[in-house]
Amino acid sequence: MGNETATRDESAEGSADDTAIRRRSRRGAWITAVLAAIVLIGGTFTYFNTNLLDSGRLCYGWVTVDEADRALGGGIGKVTASEGSAGTCTIEKASWLPGEDRRISLRADTENEGFPFTRGVWKLSGDMRVLSGGTHGAYDKWGGWAMLPAACQKVTGDDREGPVALSASVDGRGGPGDTDGMGRLLASAGRELMKASDCAAPGYGDTADRTSAPSGERAADLARVCGIEGFRLDGLRGPKGERVTERIIGEPGKAVYCDLSFEGDEEGPFARFAAVGDPALAATLGDRRFTRARCDGAETVFAHDLRYFEKSELAAMQMPDSARFSKAFGDAARAALRCA
């Protein structure tokens, strides 16, 4: 009887010990799993944020990690870059958050003659910010460009003649970048490119940058189009009677860039106007037949780019033809800018 009791007691004690061991084992496994998860999360976070401690440069040394990160919109993510041939580079930001990966293509290229005022394809729009002073270019949250001296053509690997520009473009996969960051990226990268490639020239990167912001779209005052006194387009309307809207960069008395559109027109502006006083940009207009004048000591070109319309369409919309558009804009802008 005593032996049976001892056996049951020993059995109970063994069962309790087994239970305690299993509990300790489960607790140990749980702690191990938690620690492993912490290590994994910490490692992932560190991987996707190593650029925060990286003081190196990207893209042939043109760009800092911080500049690239700002242009891509900031936030959590690791910034890397891969250099291509002939002055091309791709900057990527990988994030652990779905849909947050972003990419910028950066390249130095020889552009077509007339850039950025190529007929029908102006790369300077009334809804972009314009850089002048030390950097000559334009940008928005999707990218932009900055002019480079002619000597920087050696960076492009292209033996064509034409203006040379550094361009940035966001691929849109993870949304747009940051507008201000894009401007700083282009200005800084342009300076570093010229330094690294020994292709600097007077008027490029040797003075402070100035930024002119767009006005935003608004209804045009047809008695004072583009904010310029005397620039009148009385009665102008769209093919279906749409009113005219405008976007303006600058102001009378300084350089002016202006887009005119018909409200709701998905084709974009039907007319673009520019009083171009920036020497680097004015030079790209070459001998095109635009009005020119000396304004505040600098040659200024009064350029325009118009969508093609049939004569019958022009009459129905009360729109001037190219020659009358040119005269109306040139005369009014010369007076507003107080040109000689």
Score class of each variant (00 low, 15 high):
residue 277 G to S: 15
residue 286 G to P: 00
residue 245 T to N: 11
residue 295 C to P: 01
residue 227 G to Y: 01
residue 295 C to N: 06
residue 299 E to G: 09
residue 287 D to K: 05
residue 268 G to I: 04
residue 206 D to T: 05
residue 217 E to F: 10
residue 270 F to W: 02
residue 235 G to N: 06
residue 271 A to E: 12
residue 284 T to E: 05
residue 258 C to P: 01
residue 249 I to K: 01
residue 250 G to I: 04
residue 259 D to H: 08
residue 304 H to F: 12
residue 269 P to I: 06
residue 230 G to Y: 09
residue 262 F to E: 07
residue 252 P to F: 06
residue 257 Y to P: 01
residue 226 C to V: 03
residue 315 A to F: 05
residue 253 G to P: 01
residue 269 P to M: 12
residue 205 G to P: 00
residue 223 A to Q: 15
residue 222 L to N: 01
residue 246 E to P: 02
residue 296 D to K: 13
residue 242 E to Y: 02
residue 238 G to K: 06
residue 241 G to V: 00
residue 266 E to R: 13
residue 259 D to S: 10
residue 296 D to N: 13
residue 288 R to E: 14
residue 219 A to M: 13
residue 298 A to I: 10
residue 234 D to K: 06
residue 269 P to L: 04
residue 277 G to M: 06
residue 306 L to D: 06
residue 263 E to D: 15
residue 265 D to L: 07
residue 268 G to Y: 14
residue 279 P to Q: 03
residue 284 T to R: 04
residue 287 D to C: 00
residue 250 G to P: 00
residue 262 F to V: 05
residue 316 A to D: 14
residue 259 D to K: 02
residue 308 Y to H: 13
residue 246 E to M: 07
residue 282 A to P: 09
residue 222 L to P: 03
residue 264 G to T: 08
residue 281 L to G: 02
residue 289 R to S: 15
residue 296 D to T: 09
residue 285 L to Y: 03
residue 258 C to L: 09
residue 292 R to F: 03
residue 228 I to L: 12
residue 286 G to K: 07
residue 230 G to A: 04
residue 284 T to H: 02
residue 231 F to T: 01
residue 222 L to Y: 03
residue 293 A to K: 01
residue 262 F to L: 10
residue 243 R to T: 12
residue 203 G to K: 06
residue 228 I to P: 03
residue 206 D to S: 11
residue 307 R to H: 00
residue 293 A to N: 02
residue 297 G to I: 10
residue 236 L to E: 00
residue 241 G to I: 05
